[in-house]
Design a binder for these strands. Sequence first.
RNA 1: GGGUCGGUGGGUGAGUGGCUAAUACCACCAGACUGUAAAUCUGGCGCCUUCAAGGCUACGUAGGUUCGAAUCCUACCCGGCCCA
Length: 413
Amino acid sequence: MHTSLYQTLATRGFIHSVSNTDGLRAALERPCTFYVGFDPTAPSLHTGHLIPLALAAHLAEAGHHPVLLAGGGTGLIGDPTDRAETRDLLSAERVAANTRAVRQQVDRLFENEQADVAIVDNAAWLTQLRYLEFLRDIGRHFSVNEILATETYRARLESGQGLNFVEINYRLLQAYDFLHLFREHGCILQIGGSDQWANILAGVDLIRRIEGEEAFGLVTPLLTTSTGQKMGKTASGALWLDPELTSPYDFYQYWINIEDASVERTLALLTPLPMDEVRALAALRGAEIRTAKERLAYEITARVHGNEAAAAARDGARALFGRDGGSSAAAPQTRVTQEQLAAGLGIVDLLLTTGLAGSRSAARRLITQGGAYANEQRVNSPDVVFDADAFQGGELLLRSGKKRYHRVLVDED
RNA sequence: GGGUCGGUGGGUGAGUGGCUAAUACCACCAGACUGUAAAUCUGGCGCCUUCAAGGCUACGUAGGUUCGAAUCCUACCCGGCCCA
């Protein structure tokens, strides 16, 4: 028997809340237009955005039309959701630059989709709003009491952290976005992470009040570990989707290192693999489950960075972590000149310049604690200096801890 | 605008003149055990250093008092609460 799209999404774990389950189920029977928005708070999307993106891909796959919204307008305001304190307003230039970056990224992520994808920037309409008109037409539909009663705002008030006028307006703008897209694109569904629930419902309500029509909201769960920690955090901060900020190799490494308990959920949410396969992979036990993690890491990396980059990351990881040596080509690399080599390269400096340590102090600490390796030999002293002998084949393989590799290559000349 | 309370390291949050580079918890890093897993145990977690006894910078910003300040004073910036 035919399984509905809605059912598939539910099985894969995408559905955290829906504004009207039956209504949405029915609406999805025919091709519809939906949207998901991303605020340009940083120059790149990160793992937190992957679930809504994956959901969008499933919907697109099923013939629905995605509208991907970059929040060049709302980014100027700043979403207070889940923020303990007022966030500093980003400069207009910053927002514009981030918006461009996010647009490009979203564009690239969907370039392989067959569906017609519309990419919009809400600055296009939000910056055109006229204040008095907006207040009279839109503002009157919002109850301040209601806004203040929702989790984010209430928490802010109770913690004595305050809340300024700009922040309380965020919700109206996001609701207005939905209304705008409903009118201009016939968009009847907004998806997002569960933190966006209240903002999305505000849009659903606004459309009902003004247009007298029903639109839907669907939010996904957040990506967390079994202990409820947000996934996607690394030593250097977020796990970015921009290869310049987080290399495909590091990205791959992150996923292959996730805890066993998260394998099934992550496969279901972030990879396109059929559920049968997901279950089979997740059923593996003991060391066997590594196979599932390899598949997981490959699929997610391929989705974000393409098959080629994913394969390179996988092969590199196999070589570095497998028994039989092999190529370390996928590891991040740094080049040094013949002159630098001739002068002698100190381990502390190398750890610093390769980024394996954040400071000279950190590098020394790492060595003292026994976490620094060169060509798989533990480095026991911060005084170790490498010369040409250490660079067999013009390369020195550094390692920090068990997992972080970095190649140092000598320039030919 | 007036009164009052507050702004501490990635986060939460102690500290109210020297014993404080700053308690604790979380996050993070390393070691041990493993399966590049989890849990657990151990160590670390500002920067620089010839690593030791050292030095430098840091508790909203700028000054000041003091032998000595995150801690006291002044001004300013930002925020809470009360009044307008």
